[in-house]
Amino acid sequence: MVDIVRATGSQAESFTALMHASSAYQGEYASILDGYSVTPAYVEANPTFAAMDGEELLGFYALLEEPPELDILFVADTAQGLGLGGRLVTHMFAEARSRGMRTVRVVSHPPALGFYLRMGARRTGTIPPRPPKIAWARPEVVFTIPHVRETLT
């Protein structure tokens, strides 16, 4: 049973390890993570949530509040294809809605674009490369946060 829980700063090192182990950021995409780490201060300052199977970290995401942006979303290679990414995005929708966000921007990893589009995001543009660390264009997408309609009684 995988639970999605509010993360703590003590998990930052585990988040960094999961990111650096990701096969999605090997080869040509490795440079973006070179020297990057999630810090305890980042986790404490931004709504960050961990997908946990007991003590095992299977994924996480971080939501920036101003302006609203899904800054990080990773699923462990061993948990790919199990629907966990979709669960994290659905959880993010609820968190964004509870914070009054109407949209959430994502600057996508190019291979993840299809996932975000399947989750309901719409493409809004392309972020140009920023060499030397980011040598490729990145798709920009936006989620419109679904709101629950109140029923009149």
Rank of each mutant, 00 (worst) to 15 (best):
A50Q: 00
G120A: 05
T153H: 07
L70N: 04
A45D: 02
G59K: 04
P131K: 14
L64H: 11
L70G: 06
P47D: 02
S22G: 12
E66I: 08
Q26E: 09
N46R: 07
T126L: 14
H91A: 03
P47I: 00
I72L: 12
L70F: 02
T78N: 05
A76L: 09
P111K: 06
R130Q: 15
S10W: 03
F143S: 08
Y36E: 15
R6G: 01
L117D: 07
S37I: 03
V5E: 10
T39E: 02
P139T: 07
T124K: 08
G114D: 12
T8W: 00
T151M: 09
M19A: 13
T144Y: 09
L117Q: 09
D3T: 03
I127Q: 15
M52R: 12
L18G: 03
G100K: 07
A94H: 14
R102S: 13
P131V: 05
R122Q: 13
M101S: 04
A62V: 04
T39I: 00
P132M: 07
R97D: 15
E65L: 14
G35C: 05
L73Y: 01
R97K: 13
V106D: 08
T153I: 08
I145Y: 06
P129S: 08
T103M: 10
A94T: 13
L64M: 13
P68C: 09
E13P: 02
Q80C: 06
L113S: 05
L57F: 01
E56N: 09
M19K: 02
G27E: 13
R105T: 14
T124F: 11
F60I: 02
A135D: 15
G120P: 09
